[in-house]
Design a protein around this nucleic acid. Structure first.
Lengths: 263, 263
DNA sequence: CGACCCCTTGAGGCTTCTCAAAATCCGTGG
DNA sequence: CCACGGATTTTGAGAAGCCTCAAGGGGTCG
């Protein structure tokens, strides 16, 4: 009767407190064979790129940054929680979602390396964020971040531009959800993933989906069965071929574009 | 086969050039019995509120502002056009939409008095904007607006906050389109309208819809028939009563809230 | 009064959802 | 190396919600 009822996931309890532990412990706990200090300065780097921080500012930022490696399917924050931090993703993928009280879930966006998290938020999160894969995440307390933002015009401008981009993407998704068929939605989605992979230097030919069918369904406003059937149709049409469920070759990108319904 | 095909409206040819004429002429042309100078300074006022302009800045802004009264169903700008101006709405209502190449249309938002238009846009509009009712609109060239924005931090901050609000609304609409039933969508929509009317000091008890069923349908991702049937259901449930198609009494707001599916 | 537009209501069809079962993948352990 | 168990994906059959097509009301304007 109500769509998306069964697509609600069982997330592991959110180890947000893990931010308070040392990176070494976390690496150990999550079993990650990782670079120990690789992301020591990820937020600093991100902010520097955006706002050209002075050396003093860089030091100030660095002293407040926490970072952590989370396993797949861990909650970073939840709808309704106070939004005391902003985050950047150094590696891995994250889903942003919003839910109805009965459990129906809608994913409003997927984020990857280099993306910010929790920027356009006032005091309280309106969305939940959850890792799709193992992910390396940095966080920074919001208050000093706001101060820094106001002190550095270039940073504020960059933030506005990021938020405007997000709004544009959100409106694309509104068009997709309001007016596209299941097949068009999936085609649009695959094109978006290709585009993003290309933009971030990831391989495009065997396109790897970091999310499950359930998450694709919750993003496209469909059920897993319909998503799976739509993959099947694209395969039968010869537009794509599946090496396995999450590794996809797009043999005819132009066809995919035609099927996406976009102008 | 494809939803929303017949809901595409026939807009009158867009009199954007009307901005170049004198307000008096325009008032005459559109047959509006209006205050001749009522909005002479609307953009100046809006920007002043946002950014606390100096008297010199106010004069600079005032000299660049054009304003116009448009009749109902006139296009202000179209998807793909260069975005050379920003706008504010002084009176009346406007729909923002995005369309597929075959004509299916999705309305991404409704705007009213006091709202800005075309802020979070780079060089080219990704949406179309069209008046729902007669509307009084002011415009301001984008380039000096950007300069002003960068010169006045409070203005830039206000802009970021406006854009963040829009993003939040967009994500609510994503949840609505992706996971709510027709009845839940309409209930949510009526609650949103009530909320807005209350916030802007408009009457709430007989709630007046400035848009047609076709526009409601294009906003909710439905057809006019389904919208009409959903109104009928709400009426039969005793939650609302219709004085006429666009004048609605909400007799049981709590019931409406329950039916909206929201948490 | 008639034309037109918009809204409402009805009947039937199609896309997508629901429920169910089979197939595939993957890590684990014998 | 292969068998096993759990989770995910795929596929099938039937139902439900929404869409399409069509006709009928109610208001406004000439």
């Amino acid at each position: 009767m109500l769509r998306g009822m069964k697509t609600a996931p069982r997330t592991h309890t959110g180890p947000v407190h893990a931010f308070h532990e040392s990176p070494e412990k976390l690496l150990e706990r999550s079993g990650a064979p990782g670079p120990k200090d690789h992301c020591r300065s990820c937020t600093v780097r991100s902010l520097t790129i955006c706002g050209a921080l002075s050396p003093e500012d860089q030091a100030r930022v660095a002293s407040l940054v926490s970072h952590v490696i989370l396993g797949a399917r861990h909650e970073i924050f939840h709808e309704g929680e106070p939004a005391d931090f902003v985050y950047t993703i150094t590696s891995g993928h994250v889903a942003i979602s919003r839910s109805l009280s009965d459990g129906r879930r809608q994913i409003t966006g997927f984020l990857g390396p280099g993306d910010f998290l929790g920027l356009a938020v006032e005091s309280e999160h309106h969305n939940s964020a959850e890792t799709l894969t193992q992910a390396h995440i940095c966080r920074y307390p919001r208050k000093p971040f706001r101060q820094l933002m106001h002190a550095i015009p270039a940073l504020e401008q960059k933030l506005l531009s990021i938020t405007a981009d997000e709004l544009n993407l959100a409106q694309d998704q509104i068009l997709l959800l309001g007016r596209k068929t299941a097949l068009e939605r999936l085609a649009s989605f695959l094109l978006l993933l290709r585009q993003r992979a290309a933009a971030s230097g990831m391989p495009v030919d065997p396109l790897r989906l970091p999310m499950t069918r359930s998450e694709v369904a919750d993003y496209l406003g469909l059920t897993i069965e319909t998503v799976s059937r739509s993959f099947g149709k694209l395969r039968k049409l010869g537009v794509i071929s599946l090496e396995n469920a999450e590794t996809i070759r797009v043999s005819k990108p132009e066809q995919l574009s035609l099927l996406s319904g976009a102008g």
